[in-house]
Amino acid sequence: MVFSPELLLQALITGVLLGGIFALISVGLSLIWGVMRIVNFAHGEFLMIAMYIAYYLVVKGGWDPYLTILITAPALFLIGILIFQTTIRPILKDPSMNQIMLTVGLSLIMQNLALVFFKADVLTANTTYTRLNFMLGPVVVRGSQLIAFAGSALTAFLLYWFLQKTETGRAIRAASLNRDAATLVGINVRNTYLLAFGIGSASLGVAASLMIPFYYTSPTVGLFFGLIAYVVVVLGGLGSFPGALVAGLIIGLTESVGASLLPGSLARVLTFGIFIVVLLFKPQGIFGGKQK
């Protein structure tokens, strides 16, 4: 591949915009993982379901993609708490491996239900935003990605503010630090967990609506985004919001700059390489000083 400064600049812009979305997808996982110490291996599949909801609202219902947030976020909140109550709550105290296997099972169910209902086709929603591109000097900026970036940053910021400043948010953080102590000071840990899981899922609803103008959906789309979310959460440090943002940008840049420098899809190997190195040498992530 011929190297040119324009190409690199283009890759940088795309990488930053992509990184924003990666960060939003990851904060939900980070919240659930950080609060409940459960790695939800069905995280990507929650996103996939949300993308189908958004897709059908846009294509069949004629909705504006960004208005679908009004449906996707509450729908994912409900799906999240429903799944939490029926399957995840009963195994909260089980060995971590059982939790992993249970959520892997959930991901298989969701993936294959999607295959049954929506078939294996790759669907793209062609919206007015999809063609909203403009030139910034020598590089093309995709309007839909810019909006997604801004929306992701805003959503992540709102979530952060909610966790830091509100009474409920403080309760969630207290429960994540010490389950027993939180109970002692009168926090209803059960409800806190339920809420955290619902919010973590709802953030994927927002992400799905933001992505639908420029990203395809398919039953297996969750696989890739799920993996990206684990990478970002581990790299940024478990439970750390600023960490997830920075890590999202790093991975977004790795993917897009890597794709412009390496042949084929080898950039993905780079992403997993970073992941493995971080897991081995700094599993607490770049921002998670204390926890492991």
Binding site: G264, R268, F275, I276
Partner: peptide
């Protein structure tokens, strides 16, 4: 590599997934 650095539980599981996925992309290319 994993056990020398004390990886356990979900962290070990994640490294193994990442390695296998990396192998998919290496073989694809």
């Amino acid at each position: 590599l994993c056990f020398r650095y004390g990886l356990k539980g979900p962290y070990f599981a994640l490294v193994t997934i990442a390695l296998a996925e990396a192998a998919v992309y290496i073989a694809t290319n």
